[in-house]
Structures are given as structure tokens and as C-alpha cells.
């Protein structure tokens, strides 16, 4: 069975984009998209967990009895989340402080459990790894996009570099209402693009 990497990437980033199309994982999306850097950091962590958990769950898919598969998946995911948590605390302390409790909350990110249930539990190891990778990339890309928008609107910067012609402050964008409204308008725009296509 041949895997077309380009097709898979298109699936993860566009057609089955976890944030914009399937609308999963709202909590971390709204909370960590305060800046492009935070969003990117969260995205990378999710990719790491997705790949590892998809891989292990796929390897064990014929051993895990059906009745306990959800608790078993949770154990696998929680283990990798803790590993990522400890590694970030040790080697990337500023990211650790920026993401706070949202790192352990990756464990309840519906995307990871969703992919485990929908894909990794039914497919061989290599396709599962690829699936984890492309879904994670889709998540990271969308999250970073949102983070960049909010950071730009609130202070004219992206990744800490001043892009706008002048420095300004529109704090609302980094606060709660800004998160909801930005995501809502972005989703509406994407819906609009979709309807234009068809």
C-alpha cells in the first residue's frame, strides 16, 4: 500500500483540518493562540504526542481488548503527555511558563483521542504515524495562524518582530473575547471560501 505524502499533507492541513474543519480541541486553541510563538510551541508539543501515541496505539491495536480501549488509549496518551511536559520543563523553561497547565491538558485534547479511535486503532503503524504527523501539522499551522493574527492585531508583532508600520496596543485581542471573536470570524471566512468553491 503506497502512501502519497502530498495527499496526506493536503488532508491534514486542508480537508480534515482539526481546528477549522473538524472543530476539535477548542480549549488549547483559544488559550494558547495569544502569540505566534506560544501557538507554535503548543503545536509542536501536540505533534510529538500525536505521533508517539498513534504509533504505540497502532502497534498494540490487536492486543488491547475492545472493552477497555478508551482507558488504555488514555494511559498511553497521558504517558506521552507527561514525558513531553517533563522535557519542556527541563529544556524549554520559557515555553513551559507560557503554556502553563495547557501542557498536561493536551491529554484531553479531543484531537489526540479522536485520531487514536478513528485511525490508529484500525490501521498499521506507518500510516498511523503519518496520520499523526499530518493532523499535527494541520493543527500547528492553524494554531500558529490564529496566534499570529491575534498577536498582530494586539501589538503589531508576529513572533516578537514588529511587522506593522507603527507600534500599537489593542489588548482585547489577547484576552478572552478576542480569542472567541477571531476564531469565529476566521471560521466564517473559511466557510465562505468553501461555499465559493462549490
Amino acid at each position: 500500500m503506497s502512501i502519497n505524502l502530498k495527499d496526506e499533507l493536503y488532508r491534514g492541513v486542508v480537508t480534515e483540518n482539526p481546528i477549522f474543519r473538524i472543530v476539535l480541541g477548542m480549549c488549547p486553541t483559544l488559550a494558547t493562540s495569544t502569540s505566534a510563538t506560544n501557538a507554535f510551541g503548543m503545536g509542536i508539543s501536540v505533534i510529538a504526542v500525536l505521533i508517539c501515541s498513534n504509533m504505540v496505539i497502532s502497534m498494540l491495536r490487536n492486543i488491547i481488548p475492545g472493552k477497555v480501549r478508551i482507558p488504555a488509549f488514555i494511559v498511553v496518551i497521558a504517558t506521552f503527555v507527561t514525558v513531553v511536559d517533563l522535557l519542556i520543563a527541563a529544556f524549554l523553561p520559557s515555553l513551559y511558563e507560557a503554556l502553563g497547565i495547557f501542557i498536561p491538558l493536551i491529554v484531553v485534547n479531543c484531537i489526540i483521542l479522536g485520531r487514536a479511535e478513528a485511525y490508529a486503532a484500525k490501521n498499521p503503524v506507518l500510516p498511523s504515524i503519518i496520520d499523526g504527523l499530518v493532523m499535527g501539522i494541520g493543527f500547528t499551522a492553524s494554531l500558529t495562524l490564529l496566534g499570529s493574527m491575534r498577536e498582530f492585531l494586539s501589538s503589531g508583532m508576529i513572533f516578537g518582530y514588529l511587522i506593522a508600520p507603527f507600534k500599537h496596543q489593542f489588548i482585547l485581542m489577547i484576552l478572552a473575547p478576542g480569542a472567541f471573536i477571531t476564531l469565529g470570524l476566521t471560521l466564517a471566512f473559511i466557510n465562505f471560501l468553501q461555499s465559493k468553491e462549490s
Binding site: 472543530v23 484576552l175 480569542a179 472567541f180 469565529g184 470570524l185 466564517a188 466557510n191 465562505f192
Partner: peptide
């Protein structure tokens, strides 16, 4: 509601306005 806004978009924007009130 405009077609593109139906569903999640309008829900999110409504929540945003409510969040503004809670602020």
C-alpha cells in the same frame, strides 16, 4: 444569519461578546 456564519462562527462570536460582558 449569513450562510458562512451559521453554526460555529456565530456561536463563537456570541461567546466573545458574552466574554466581553463578563470582563
Amino acid at each position: 444569519i449569513p450562510r458562512s456564519m451559521e453554526g460555529f462562527p456565530i456561536a463563537l462570536i456570541t461567546t466573545g461578546i458574552m466574554a466581553l460582558a463578563f470582563m
